[in-house]
Design a binder for these strands. Structure first.
Length: 867
DNA sequence: ACCTCCCGCCATGCT
DNA sequence: AGCATGGCGGGAGGT
């Protein structure tokens, strides 16, 4: 099957190297030449890399890199020059060098281990493709080609691709072939992951673990029981680990081929790892904690060291890729115990998409059907076993997918706009640099390039993250404020009927209203563990002191900017709306996280979470009863994108939210993508936004067992200030819930610690966005898109505009395409694109009501940079 | 000595 | 059987 597909997919443009093209034979030259032609138009100019590889070895090359990093112009010039020239030349150069150097010298020249690092490799890989590729263009990625070009074994490429796939930045087309989506769906994906993470109660788990550790350290009382419990629970009633994959929106689910291994897949780990960041309040996750949680899910008991070590190794792999994406950065958390390696989220703030309430409706019939069918298929597959694993696709699904793919293929093959995108990045320079500096330089360069390209495009640059790494302690408090806002927005689906999922509905695939933003996703939950029981201890909120490494910061910023393009629109809106927008990144994060949680929760799922956490016992019990089985939902499954809506809107929203989050709690200003920035009441927002957004509903497919909680509580979110939707939990419960949600930051206590950062609310600087030209139009419709596309998409023009964000859809409409589009895109059509709107919410601040008492620990985080 | 994590063996599954 | 994927962990480079 795939093969067939493969063949089909092979883009016409690209040459025929279809299948396993030559492997690494060093025929690099040949390969390059062959390939290049093809790529040229399509993809970013990639080749150079190899050449670059050769260069880096020389001091001059390094120097050049540094210089170029500093000066984009120079860089560009060099690149251009070098690209073509290098290809053929580089290899030669290398040879030359080899010949002339003595053994020692030669060795010196040879790339050191670092040069071969996955992170660097990933940068190179990323440099080849634009952050926001033009959907119209063929963005296929041939793994073999890439491996050759980058001079690495294919195995390495898998590592990268798997992680990217988990973020839906790429999707598997066929054997050996992937499609590059770039960051178009990133925010959406992250939102979904956040939602799922919330559902899984990762935050609680993290807190539990931390608490436990903490206690152990101090001989405090053991609360293990709780933790253990939690962890065990993860295992799932059946003992099935929850392994779930979240298939995100936007991306097709091709990965299926892999099914069997999915559970352990790096993809899953990656998603879970990301979830941890999104859910945890100080968005810092130590490898240790992450490993424990991940292991916990899989196997409670074995804490074997070996397993732990293996997990850690994998996490490093993932972390390297995520770092390259600028989503996280390495930091050290200093505790009483000592320093522990950890990673801090430096990516965009996200608001949970999924759960949000999404109205289910709004599609056109046709769309619905399509979706439905797809969903059903998915559901069948997933559910059939229910338990786990079956992520395999049902044949019908497969067919469907194929058809879609074929359509897509056609589209792709169609002479779409040629272009490439920017990606200057492609800069390719990606040469391996021996030294860290070199690496940094390379990275900086890439970033600069991207930025420059973006800026050109008018993309707004967001300053927002200006302080990406600020040492501030991420405090939640500010974030809290967001809660209110967000929640409401999320909740209300426009006309859609909010599904209120009763917990009961377990197992059944649910269609949840989606958050405005997004595309709908099918979430497959596996039965799994119920975390509910968890009582969230409050974790210790560490104070984080991040020292930014220059590099990190730099990268981050740049990255943020890029990532946030989407956000830009929103951001600008938010910025305007917001009072002070200058929050340090950290704060943002904290706030975001909180908000996110809240927001996410708004969604039905969240509601469940809230319940769990909040009411803990009662709710849990209740839920359990309802659920029968499992407990919490484990989100594990893949989320299958029902539609590929542009997520942009959502993203933007998110970003805006994020930004806004810092704001005073009370301010509720919403920027609606549609309207632009408009202060709106939540109600207003909903009304406004929904239409556009809600296009796609979100489906949650829950395995029967798992089900339970999910649901719904959309309305809850609405509750203005306090999100606590849930039934009437006692105030205590509410508080508790809030805390969990993030409304109330546990950190409050933390704050006590001298952490620098904890600024309660600091205005962030968000993004200063410049509105893109398009903005007008876009905004009008949905601001959502905005962001993403900035660069690349443009070429396509309209279609792009419409779909904007959406990636994959090719512009040219063809019959087949149409089908595909309908399938993926939002029903609404172009106009709808959007996503979401705006929902920014500011969180209301949370009071510290219920902070649990947890021993506070201080965590100091120092970012180290790399190295 | 510990942290990272590269490398590539080899299992798994699809073709 | 052959090939694509990717789990896995030994062991080495870095610090």
């Amino acid at each position: 099957m795939e093969n067939e597909k493969e063949n089909l997919f092979c883009e016409p443009h690209k040459r025929g190297l279809i299948k396993t093209p030559l492997k690494e034979s060093t025929t690099a030259n040949i390969v390059l030449t062959e390939i290049q032609p093809d790529f040229g138009p399509l993809t970013t100019p990639t080749k150079p890399k190899e050449g670059s590889q050769g260069e880096p070895w020389t001091p001059t090359a390094n120097l050049k890199m540094l210089i170029s990093a500093v000066s984009p112009e120079i860089r560009n010039r060099d690149q251009k020059r070098g690209l073509f020239g290098n290809r053929s030349g580089l290899p030669e150069a290398k040879d030359y060098i080899h010949e002339h150097l003595s053994g020692d010298e030669f060795e010196k020249c040879q790339p050191s281990r670092k040069e071969k690092s996955l992170g660097l490799l990933c940068h190179k890989f990323l440099a080849r493709y634009p952050n926001y590729p033009n959907p119209a263009v063929n963005n296929d990625i041939c793994l073999d080609e890439v491996a050759e070009e980058l001079n690495v074994e294919r195995r390495r490429i898998y590592d990268i691709v798997n992680v990217l796939e988990s973020l839906h930045m790429v999707s598997r087309l066929a054997k050996n072939r992937y499609t590059w989506h770039g960051r178009h769906n990133l925010n959406k994906t992250l939102g979904t992951l956040k939602s799922v993470g919330e559902e899984n109660k990762y935050a609680e788990q993290i807190m539990m673990i931390k608490k436990k550790e903490y206690e152990q350290e101090f001989d405090f009382i053991k609360s293990y029981s709780i933790e253990d419990h939690i962890i065990k629970s993860n295992t799932g009633p059946n003992g099935h680990p929850d392994v779930c994959f979240v298939e995100l929106p936007g991306v097709e689910f091709r990965a299926a081929s892999v099914n069997s291994r999915k559970d352990k897949s790096l993809r899953v780990m990656s998603q879970k790892f990301v979830m941890l960041f999104l859910v945890s309040t100080p968005q810092i996750v130590s490898l240790e904690v992450a490993a424990k949680i991940l292991i916990g899910e899989d196997h409670v008991e074995d804490l074997d060291k070996s397993k732990f070590k293996t997990k850690i190794r994998r996490l490093y792999d993932i972390a390297n890729v995520l770092s390259s994406l600028d989503l996280i950065k390495k930091v050290h958390v200093t505790e009483e115990r000592g320093r522990k390696p950890a990673f801090k989220w430096t990516g965009p703030e996200i608001r949970p998409n999924t759960s949000g309430s999404s109205p289910v409706i709004a599609f056109t019939p046709s769309d619905l059907e399509v979706r439905r069918s797809s969903k059903e298929n998915c559901a069948k597959n997933l559910f059939s076993t229910r338990g786990k694993p079956n992520f395999t696709r049902h044949p019908s699904l497969i067919k469907l997918v194929k058809s879609i793919e074929s359509d897509r293929r056609k589209i792709n093959s169609a002479p779409s706009s040629p272009i490439k995108t920017n990606k200057a990045e492609s800069s390719q320079n990606s040469t391996p640099f021996p030294s860290k500096m070199a690496q940094l330089a390379a990275i900086c360069k890439m970033q600069l390039e991207q930025q420059s390209s973006e800026s050109r495009q008018k993309v707004k640059v967001q300053l927002a993250r200006s302080g990406p790494c600020k040492p501030v302690a991420p405090l939640d408090p500010p974030a809290n404020a967001e809660m209110e806002l967000t929640a409401p927005s999320l909740i209300q689906p426009l006309g859609v009927v909010p599904l209120i999922p009763s917990p009961l509905s377990s197992a059944v695939p649910l269609i949840l209203p989606q958050a405005p933003s997004g595309p709908s996703y099918a979430i497959y939950l596996q039965p799994a563990q119920a975390h509910q029981s968890v009582t969230p201890p409050q974790g210790l909120s560490p104070t984080v002191c991040t020292t930014h490494s220059s590099k990190a910061a730099g990268t981050k910023d740049s990255t943020d900017a890029t990532t946030e393009k989407a956000a830009n629109d929103t951001s600008k809106a938010s910025a305007s709306t917001r009072p002070g927008s200058l929050l340090p990144a950290p704060e943002r994060q904290g706030a975001k996280s909180q908000t996110r949680e809240l927001a996410g929760e708004r969604g039905s799922k969240r509601a469940s979470m809230l319940e769990d956490s909040g009411s803990k016992k009662k709710f849990k019990e209740e839920l359990k009863g309802l659920e029968n089985v499992s407990t919490t939902l484990f989100p594990s499954g893949y989320l299958i994108p029902l539609t590929q809506c542009s997520s942009l809107g959502a993203e933007s929203i998110l970003s805006s939210k994020e930004n806004s989050g810092a704001l005073s709690p009370n301010h509720r200003i919403y920027s609606s993508p549609i309207a632009g920035i408009i202060p709106v009441t939540s109600s207003e927002l909903t009304a406004v936004n929904f239409p556009s957004f809600h296009v796609t509903p979100l489906k949650l497919m829950v395995s029967p067992t798992s089900v339970a909680a999910v649901p719904v509580g959309n309305s809850t979110a609405l509750a203005s200030s306090h999100p606590v939707p849930i039934q009437n939990p006692s105030s205590a419960i509410v508080n508790f819930t809030l805390q969990h949600l993030g409304l109330i930051s546990p950190s409050v206590q933390m704050s006590a610690s001298p952490g620098p950062g904890i600024v309660p609310v600091s205005p962030r600087i968000e993004a200063v966005n410049v509105v893109p030209e398009n903005a007008g139009t876009q905004q009008g419709r949905a601001t959502n898109y905005d962001s993403p596309v900035p660069g690349q998409s443009q070429p396509n023009g309209q279609s792009v505009a419409v779909t904007g964000a959406q990636q994959p859809v090719p512009v040219t409409p063809k019959g087949s395409q149409l089908v595909a589009e309908s399938f993926f895109r939002t029903p609404g059509g172009p106009t709808k694109p959007t996503s979401s709107s705006c929902m920014d919410f500011d969180g209301a601040k949370k009071t510290s009501l219920g902070t649990l008492f947890v021993p506070q620990r201080k965590l100091e985080v120092s970012t180290e940079d790399v190295h």
